[in-house]
């Protein structure tokens, strides 16, 4: 692989784009491909087959060829509302996975750089903050403040914009009350039930890192379902 291609892969990864790298296993040549790029002579003959793999985000040696395709998929975006202690553990765990993370919290004293490094932080009320982000159905929301005036507007936004994962921290009772408020706000039963609350899978943990781990396990599980569905 030419080092220019390596640099280009790193660059495109940081731009969070969908693309693929094609490698001709018999010549060792590789090139970057996305639906906008034109294929070079070497790969042109297999354009249809390459497009089939690319559109299905399939990785591997393309049948009947010596071309290997590896897809780089735009990561899922995760919005965390509440720069509380659990958020610090969440950030630590999430960096091992392919997610783009943004923290929203209007309370500046929570979002100090000492507590959160190398994470995008928006110091605004969730409604304003979310409206500034171009969200889509590949977004996940995790609310951690269990303060209705901060969490509820974020939950409403995520429900309306059909985020694929919505999880809300809080006890069963807190969640019941939250569901009541959302119902009063006009959300349907099914929508409200789509919220993972209390958030996280159950494995009997009570400590902060354990709660963070249970949230990440649930988020990763739901993300895998999303990626699998998008392939079918």
């Amino acid at each position: 692989m030419k080092k220019e291609i390596l640099k280009e892969i790193i660059k495109r990864n940081s731009l969070k784009e969908d693309f693929a790298v094609l490698t001709n296993l018999s010549t060792g040549n590789s090139e970057i491909f996305n639906s906008k790029n034109l294929l070079s002579k070497e790969f042109k003959n297999y354009e249809n087959k390459i497009n089939n793999f690319y559109n299905l985000k399939k990785n591997g040696i393309i049948d009947g060829t010596q071309i290997f395709i590896l897809n780089y998929i735009k990561p899922v975006e995760v919005i965390i509302v509440g720069a509380v202690h659990i958020a610090q553990y969440l950030i630590d765990l999430l960096k091992n996975f392919n997610f783009i993370v943004t923290i929203i919290d209007p309370r500046k004293y929570f979002t100090t750089e000492q507590r959160f490094q190398k994470v995008k932080i928006i110091n605004e009320w969730p409604k304003n903050a979310l409206e500034k982000i171009e969200t889509n159905t590949n977004f996940a929301l995790i609310t951690l403040t269990h303060d209705p005036k901060i969490d509820d507007p974020a939950l409403s936004y995520a429900l309306k914009n059909k985020f694929f994962y919505i999880g809300a921290l809080g006890s069963k009772k807190t969640h019941e009350n939250r569901c009541k408020r959302l119902k009063e706000a006009g959300f349907g039963e099914k929508e409200i039930r789509s919220i993972h609350g209390p958030i996280g899978i159950k494995f009997g943990g009570k400590s902060t890192p354990e709660i963070a781990l249970s949230i990440v396990a649930q988020l990763v599980s739901e993300t895998n379902k999303l990626l699998l569905n998008s392939k079918n």
Partner: peptide, 14 residues
């Protein structure tokens, strides 16, 4: 993960 590895490859090359 693959992102980290490629970044490391690049810094070795540099």
């Amino acid at each position: 993960m693959s992102e980290t590895i490629l970044k490391n490859a690049n810094s070795w090359i540099e």
